[in-house]
Design a protein around this nucleic acid. Structure first.
Length: 630
DNA sequence: TTAGGGTTAG
């Protein structure tokens, strides 16, 4: 353990004899920097003092750098203060050391001190300060630093230019970032990477197109990709559409260019690839990447676990979660826990989720807002609204928009529309701005509880929070009006809504028409649904069934012919359940299961019970008697 | 001797 009184003594130490061991000391310091080892840094520091090198500019610079990299900025400052004559290297190293340790205001204060002291900043100082302004998203300070940069003619430096592009992007001033990029006399791969990263951060529709356009221009200008480029691009590689598979192509690019950055030894690229394959429903390819990694950190394990969860393979996710701790000797962090919660609750129900919650309490992670949000969601979905509310009220100390949205959606799921609206209003009173997910949550809650007036009133005011209607929000309104039986009003809303109605809109009208037995409206809604979603066989089958129920066989034949003509085939629906680590799957009218007779016999008895009785103990008794027979 | 981009979740 480092003590500051000991460090102070070291910095004051002046030996009587100075020996020419500078080179060996520099090597030792370089080793401390490479290993980021505090022990080695302290040993080097002791040697520096013993040899009387405490005023040696190069050695002191390295020492400040070493302490900063060992996350010890206070020790770095002590060394800095002990230097009588400070040059620009020494100033820059501590300014950068503060920045690396997240001490942005200290970094800026030191920059001011440097200027007051009459020491001129150079291109290294400016690039660090631009980065600091970006980190704290302070565009005004950024402008000030940019002014100093232009005045001193540092604008031609590529690293400085890249740092200002980063700063302007982080401050949301993409136009200014592009202006810096456009006017750079010379660019490197990083300049393109920073621009691509900046565009990615913009969010919203069309970002992907802009990113790929930047990539095209980058290639036209003769630049290749490095690891940073690829890791920025992988999140934009969705599932292959049959024509191009950018994710696979980038993976090949990595393998071909293995001299520069090989996935086996690069955590970042490995994690990005696993994530990309998981999100594009190719979790097994992701697993191959994971298996090829020479070493795996918590990010790699979590990315792999998350891939399995996203693809519904909860058993494998749970297995890997155990392996991470036993084989990998890695303790789960909050992201690992958040990732595994859906698997736990799916396999173990409320008990599985509670086990994760208990682990989080033991590790003192239970007040982390993101973990609380996942727990609120899990408890709501597992049927325990009371536990969800307890987490929301007592564990979730600093609530964000997702915390409120999760709780509001939970009330909606349980048909408690008035509680959802009450909480939505409380959220607004707390000054938290709703996002479109909050609005979807509260509107669907209104729909389930037939609170049409309240829902329409909420919809009317969303623009006050900078929100525009989305297709999801509009679908909630159609669903809400439709469920309450106001089918004509729902159709009028569709006709006047500000967006082109898509499958979710017509699907909502279909459901409402079925609910209220309005076959004319159902016919119309299905026709529009098929028009906007012509490749979904389910729509044709449902419409055909509708005609069949009214014995309109000509119409049935017409729909079936259209399906055949378009080459559409409906895959049979499948459901499954895991009992004692064995998964049992069932298709429609499936009789392949060895307990099939018992299952159908029970179903015959369950149907009238479900339709007539609300007493759950009757159902439980019935189920238990059949389990004993099976 | 000092400077720059990328990783998992809700």
């Amino acid at each position: 353990m480092i003590t500051f009184s000991a460090l102070r003594q070291l910095t004051k130490f002046t030996p009587t004899i100075s020996r020419n061991y500078t080179s060996a000391t520099l090597q030792l310091l370089q080793l401390s920097i490479t290993n980021q080892s505090l022990t080695q840094t302290l040993q080097s520091h002791a040697r520096v003092c013993y040899l009387g090198l405490t005023q040696h500019s190069v050695i002191v610079t390295k020492l400040i750098s070493a302490y900063s990299l060992c996350k010890n900025p206070l020790a770095a400052r002590l060394v800095f203060d002990s230097v009588r004559v400070k040059n620009v290297f020494i100033w820059n190293t501590l300014i950068n050391g503060y920045a690396k340790n997240g001490l942005c205001s200290e970094s800026f204060e030191l920059f001011r001190e440097m200027c007051r002291n009459g020491d001129d900043p150079d291109n290294f100082t400016i690039s660090t300060m631009a980065k600091v302004c970006g980190d704290v998203e302070d565009g005004l300070l950024g402008d000030l630093v940019h002014g100093v940069c232009v005045k001193n003619g540092f604008g031609v430096d590529i690293v400085v230019g890249n740092a200002f592009i980063f700063m302007y992007c982080k401050c949301g001033r993409f136009r200014d970032a592009f202006e810096v990029f456009d006017e750079m006399p010379e660019r490197n791969v990083s300049s393109w990477n920073v621009m691509i990263g900046g565009v990615s951060g913009l969010g919203g529709d069309g970002v992907s197109e802009v990113v790929w356009e930047f990539v095209r221009c980058m290639v036209v200008e003769g630049f290749g990709f490095d690891g940073f480029t690829i890791s920025s691009l992988l999140p934009f590689c969705g599932r292959s559409n049959g024509k191009c598979d950018f994710g696979r192509e980038l993976h090949s690019y990595i393998v071909k260019n293995d001299g520069g950055f090989f996935v086996e030894s690069d955590f970042y690229l490995g994690c990005c690839l696993i994530d990309m394959y998981g999100k594009s429903k190719r979790v097994n390819v992701g697993r191959n990447v994971f298996n090829c990694m020479r070493d795996r950190n918590i990010f790699a394990w979590t990315a792999m676990i998350s891939g399995y969860v996203q693809n519904g393979d909860f058993d494998e996710a749970m297995f890997l979660f155990g392996e991470m701790q036993s084989k990998g000797r890695i303790e789960p962090n909050k992201v690992s826990l958040i990732s595994i919660i859906p698997a736990c609750s799916s396999l173990g129900g409320l008990l599985g989720g509670k086990q994760v919650h208990g682990f989080a309490v033991r590790k003192e992670l239970n007040h982390e807002v993101s973990l609380c949000n996942a727990l609120i969601d899990m408890y709501s979905k597992c049927g325990s609204l009371n536990y969800a509310r307890k987490v929301f009220d007592f564990h979730c100390i600093s609530k964000d928009a997702i915390s409120w949205s999760s709780m509001i959606s939970g009330y909606g799921l349980h048909g408690k529309g008035s509680d959802a609206v009450l909480l939505y209003n409380k959220m607004l009173q707390s000054g938290i701005k709703p996002d479109f997910i909050t609005v979807v949550g509260v509107l669907s809650a209104c729909g389930r509880s037939e609170m049409v007036e309240e829902g329409l009133d909420i919809y009317k005011h969303i623009n006050e929070y900078g929100l525009e209607p989305t297709l999801e929000i509009c679908a909630c309104i159609v669903d809400m009006l439709g469920r309450s039986g106001q089918l004509d009003k729902a159709l009028d809303f569709i006709k006047t809504m500000p967006l082109e109605p898509g499958p979710s809109i017509w699907g909502s009208l279909v459901n409402a028409s079925v609910l209220h037995g309005n076959s004319d409206m159902l016919d119309l809604a299905y026709k529009f649904l098929i028009q906007v979603e012509p490749a979904n066989p389910s729509n044709y089958v449902s419409l055909s069934n509708l005609y069949a129920s009214s014995r309109n066989w000509d119409a049935v034949a017409e729909v079936r012919a259209k399906m055949k003509e378009r080459g559409l085939k409906k895959l049979p629906g499948c459901s499954w359940i895991s009992v004692n680590n064995e998964t049992h799957s069932f298709y429609v009218a499936d009789k392949a299961h060895h307990c099939s007779d018992l299952i159908y016999q029970m179903l015959q008895e369950l149907i009238p019970v479900m339709m007539g009785a609300s007493n759950s103990t009757i159902l439980e008794d019935l189920a238990l008697s059949y389990l004993e027979q099976a």
